[in-house]
Simulated scan of single mutants.
Amino acid sequence: MHLRPELLKGVFAAGFQAPSKIQEKAIPLLLHDPPQNLIGQSQSGTGKTATFTLAVLSRVDPTDPSLQAVILAPARELARQIMDVVESLGRFSGIKAALLVKEALKDTTAGGKVDAQILVATPGTVIDAAQRKRVIDMSKVKIFVLDEADNMLNAQGMGDQSMRVRGLIPRNQPVQVALFSATFPRQVRDFAERMAPNSNKLTLRQEELSVAGIKQFYFQCRDDEEKFKMLNDLYGLLTVGQSIIFVNRRDVADRIAQRMTADGHQVTALHGQLTPDDRDRVIDDFRAGRAKVLISTNVLSRGIDVLQVTIVINYDLPTGERGLPDPETYLHRIGRTGRFGRNGVSVNFVHDDRSRRVMEEISNYFSVEIKPLPTDDFELIEKTLKKAMK
């Protein structure tokens, strides 16, 4: 792949032995001279972050202290995760990287410049840093990466903010743009074309979208109370490494966490009402294995990358505006398991006609079978799920 020796050393030290499919295709395109833009579609857990990180590290001149690369993520949790990969793969490069999220920006003052050649940040923070605090200079940025563009557009105003960040780079400064997204509905395609014109494209067919290593099941429950009973019974039945339970509302996350904790499970809840420090602590505890079950809302269903996650539960199936099924969010959610070719399991909870229709439409969208599990035969449930996890 024509990587510099110090970057190859970082790759092997991080435990990579052979490139994934996306890495095999995208890295040569990103390293081509003269630089070309890239729009890439990639599933969770395929090595996408390492792909654009190696491209960024390759483009940066270690002898030039200027800011040369900006990587944007839609959420601080994902930005922290990307920063970990940049530090890991670049550990022998001598290149300086900085993580810039809202609370980090509070610690900077005008005149106290951010000392970094690579900036990993959320869009609004970059605008504040460049225009209000004037602690970064974008005039020498030569590679600009947007990760999870579909989530950028789902977040209020973040697509426009990303375009404004792109506009902070002078028109006469040649810049390579790389944009990645798990899904490409029409509004994401239009946004990508404006952000990265005349680009190389790597896309997946519709039937390739549902993660191959994830076995998908569902429970048909009578009502909300039976949903919780089945959830509790499931955790009493299985010994799983770690798991994530997705819900649609914060109050549901807190209520389930309280009830499961009272029943003796190691549970923690993650949602947007937590302070940034508390969110970091929850993620760090989960990554370190101090909490076995993470209950999360949609807003934080991305950027959680834990290899030990063996089961994802959709306690509430994801819906968007007007209660319509949200296949893109479903894909992001179940992509938290079955990462890097491992087997994983997702279990959906259905409790009325509406939730069943949502599941069926998602199943049809991805052309994938979601298999029923019995609610009254625990021996069969255990046997089925254990077999799926092998």
Rank of each mutant, 00 (worst) to 15 (best):
P5D: 10
P5F: 09
E6A: 04
L7I: 02
A14F: 09
F16L: 01
Q17L: 07
S20F: 05
I22W: 01
K25P: 01
A26K: 00
I27F: 12
L30P: 11
Q36L: 04
N37I: 15
N37E: 03
I39R: 02
S42D: 14
S42E: 13
Q43F: 06
T46V: 10
T46L: 05
G47V: 01
K48W: 00
A50F: 07
A50D: 15
V56L: 14
D61M: 11
P62H: 08
P65D: 10
P65T: 06
S66T: 00
A69F: 08
V70E: 03
P74W: 14
E77K: 05
I82V: 04
I82R: 13
I82D: 03
M83Y: 03
V85Q: 14
V86T: 01
K96W: 08
A97C: 02
A98D: 07
L99R: 11
L100P: 08
E103H: 09
A104E: 14
K106D: 08
D107M: 11
D107W: 12
T108P: 11
A110C: 12
K113T: 08
K113C: 09
I118D: 07
T122R: 09
P123E: 06
D137W: 10
M138H: 08
V141H: 05
K142D: 06
K142Q: 11
A149L: 13
A149D: 03
D150E: 04
L153S: 10
L153E: 02
Q156H: 10
M158Y: 15
G159P: 12
D160G: 03
Q161W: 14
Q161I: 07
S162W: 11
P170T: 13
A182W: 10
T183L: 03
F184H: 10
Q187V: 02
N198K: 06
N200P: 08
K201I: 09
T203H: 09
R205H: 14
R205Q: 13
G213A: 01
K215N: 09
F217V: 11
Y218E: 07
F219A: 12
R222C: 14
D224G: 04
K227H: 13
K229T: 14
K229I: 15
L231R: 06
V240Q: 00
I245K: 01
F246G: 10
V247A: 14
T261W: 08
G264H: 12
H265I: 15
H265W: 08
V267I: 12
V267S: 00
L270Q: 09
L270Y: 02
P276M: 00
D278I: 02
D278V: 04
R279N: 04
I283P: 02
D285W: 01
D285C: 05
R290Y: 07
A291C: 07
K292F: 10
K292S: 13
L300Y: 11
L300H: 11
I311R: 03
V312N: 12
Y315T: 06
T319P: 00
R322C: 02
G323K: 01
G323S: 05
G323T: 02
L324V: 14
G344M: 02
F349Q: 07
D352K: 00
D353F: 00
R354N: 09
I362T: 10
S363E: 07
N364W: 04
Y365H: 08
Y365A: 12
Y365C: 11
F366N: 03
E369M: 07
E369K: 04
E369P: 11
T375W: 06
F378E: 13
F378T: 10
I381H: 05
E382D: 04
K383V: 00
K390R: 06
